[in-house]
Design a protein around this nucleic acid. Structure first.
Length: 569
RNA sequence: GGGCUCGUGGCUUAGCCAGGAUAUAGCGCUGGGCUUCUAACCCAGACGUCGGGGGUUCAAAUCCCUUCGAGCCCGCCA
């Protein structure tokens, strides 16, 4: 709705500026959201600079020339010094309320758009996901949800490394040590993987055994491949379970080895060779990317002829490029360089490059996390502790409820808190994990937003019981005139533009901030405006409708954040 | 040594790419509010050289240069 408001302001302002005698592009209107108006333009600054005029005077001339058409969302425009301030009118507020009531869970959705292939998580199957990995999952999953709501046809993939060196070590470890199958399968894999790495460190001779395994896989040795697969599928099964609990689902798991089998890896090597930018360096095949600004060459084939992760990834991206209009990858900061080289190489052979979203590291107070060294906090452990802490909270706050209720709410609140905590900060900030903060529900996080939703549900529930509410009833939105009602409506109206913005910039944290502000607006309304106790029947009906709208937009926001929306908590 | 990212009240953080009106919000701190739709809430208050320095501009948290600090990367690992 806000996007429409902006579009109307754009055309009104542009017309007025023309009347005053200037030509402007849309981008020169310099709109911004502001505490002083619903939409403010700094166009007078810009025009004054170009045409050597007084910006204040120009602003008031433009405002006098301005005409607001009948039925516009704009109610009023005024000049405040050099600023041109636009204020939404009643029509905008009332239209927003009816739009939410009509569109319900579809409110905020964009028109159908292109097909997107989004890859996220793709952690190596050498152990369970840890708290660093889930930053990838949460950013990726939230983006996928935002893009879907924005109208894109999104397919989400997990790229499974089932043949790299680390996996060879895993497979080797499974032969050497007994798997503890009483544990979750990915944790059992990590145990032997960590032990194997200790062995490798002690006895570097073993490296030859790993090399041998990798060569066997590359040439298609059935038994070795079978062993790799067994180890990989154990780890992947555990990872999937963890992701499911996080409310993250992938449409497809694509394995690296499939590109070797299909010959795609060989094909891509030939294509790169054909550009003439490859050469042999100590027996290895390398690509010269100096014209793309990369000083060091990129190795795409070992001297023994085997492929590398990068080579298979190139083949994977070649395959992806053929099936979608946009390719999006979510990578950790350690992949910055390699993803740049990947993009350059793809560009050099005319394959569509992925858009890469980079997030910085989550480390521990004692340093960065490492599966190999066993230095990590697994996502499962975090989920267990956080839901346990949430359970205690429900128990103190709602002692009268059933065990099942408490469990269900604790799961939604705990997992929601984890997701929100991670998604709320912009990806380029590196963070240090700390238990105290992770388990703290006092701050304005997911539980705060969920609580607002539950409050809205509770009012509606009570009204239904008293037979005082019919959701389909015609209401008169012009009765919603309190400040906190208007603020709430305006906040709801922003939802679509937040989705649009997040999708355009691939920035999920924008939505997290918005959801909190929406909850803020609802809580203020809740505090100041009585709903069920409203004396006038028509006013009560309108307010109930508004509560229902808030409930819908809060639920839509939470859903897009991948966070559960409890009706009671 | 080179490259990328970050540095905003005690702590966490928005705003920075597209420079403009009193710098966003939470935690913590001080004080207030539950016989009234769930107090996981609300209200009020204190706390800021936007890392330091220089520059561009009518105007800089935002752009440029420089410097300091933190993280990540610079493998025939992934």
């Amino acid at each position: 709705m806000f996007l429409e408001l902006k579009a109307q302001a754009t055309s009104i302002l542009k017309e007025a500026i023309q009347k005053v005698g200037f030509e402007v592009e849309d981008s020169e209107l310099q709109f911004e959201t502001s505490p002083h108006a619903d939409l403010a333009s700094r166009a007078a600054f810009r025009l004054a600079g170009i045409h050597k005029q007084n910006p204040k005077e120009l602003a008031s001339r433009i405002v006098s020339a301005l005409e607001i058409p009948e039925g516009s969302y704009i109610g009023e425009v005024s000049a405040a010094g050099p600023y041109i301030n636009f204020f939404a009118g009643r029509h905008y507020l009332e239209r927003t309320v009816s739009a939410v009531r009509e569109e319900k869970e579809k409110f905020g959705c964009g028109a159908p758009k292109d097909r997107i292939l989004l890859e996220h998580t793709s952690a190596n199957p050498n152990g369970p996901l840890h708290v660093g990995h889930i930053r990838n999952s949460i950013i990726g999953d939230t983006l996928a949800r935002i893009l879907r709501r924005a109208g894109y046809d999104v397919e989400v993939q997990y790229y499974v490394n089932d043949m790299g060196r680390q996996i060879a070590v895993v497979s080797w470890a499974c032969e050497l040590f007994e798997l503890d199958l009483s544990r979750k399968s990915d944790a059992a894999i990590a145990d032997v993987y960590i032990k194997a790495n200790v062995e490798l460190e002690k006895n570097p001779e073993y490296v030859k055994e790993i090399d041998a395994l990798m060569e066997k896989v590359e040439v298609g040795d059935v038994r070795t491949i079978e062993q790799f697969n067994q180890a990989v599928s154990l780890a992947v099964a555990g990872i999937k379970e963890t992701l499911l609990r996080l409310n993250v689902v992938h449409d497809k798991f694509v394995s690296e080895s499939s590109f070797l089998k299909s010959g795609a890896v060989q094909d891509i090597v030939e294509r790169i060779r054909a550009t003439g930018r490859t050469k042999t360096d100590k027996g290895a095949l390398v690509v010269d990317l100096s014209d793309y600004g990369f000083e060091k060459t990129l190795v795409i084939q070992r001297s023994n002829g085997t492929s590398l992760y990068t080579t298979r990834d190139l083949a994977y991206h070649g395959w992806k490029a053929g099936q979608a209009d946009r390719i999006i990858d979510i990578f950790g900061a350690d992949h910055k360089l390699i993803s740049g080289q990947l993009r350059a190489t793809l560009n050099s052979i005319g394959i569509k490059e992925p858009e890469v979203v980079i997030f910085e590291f989550v480390s521990l107070p004692e340093g960065s996390m490492s599966t190999r060294r066993g230095q990590f906090i697994s996502a499962d452990e975090l989920f267990d502790k956080v839901t346990e802490a949430a359970f205690e909270q429900v128990e103190t706050r709602r002692p009268e409820t059933s065990y099942e209720f408490k469990k269900e709410v604790a799961e939604m609140v705990g997992i929601g808190a984890v997701r929100y905590d991670i998604v709320r900060v912009s990806p380029e900030k590196s963070t240090v994990f700390n238990w105290k903060e992770a388990l703290d529900f006092e701050k304005q996080g997911a539980p705060y937003i969920q609580y607002s939703h539950a409050r809205a549900c509770s009012i509606l529930e009570k009204a239904k019981e008293e037979a005082a509410w019919n959701p389909e009833e015609e209401i008169n939105p012009s009765l919603l005139v309190e400040d906190s009602e208007i603020d709430l409506i305006k906040k709801m109206a922003m939802f679509g533009s937040i989705i649009d913005h997040g999708a355009r910039e691939l920035k999920p944290h924008i939505l997290a901030i918005y959801a909190r502000e929406l909850a803020d607006a609802f809580n203020q309304f809740y505090r100041f405006v009585p709903v069920i106790a409203a004396e006038d029947e028509k006013v009560r009906a309108s307010r109930l409708a508004l509560v229902d709208c808030a409930r819908i937009v809060l639920a839509n926001s939470l859903d897009t954040l991948g966070i559960g929306a409890p009706e009671s908590m």
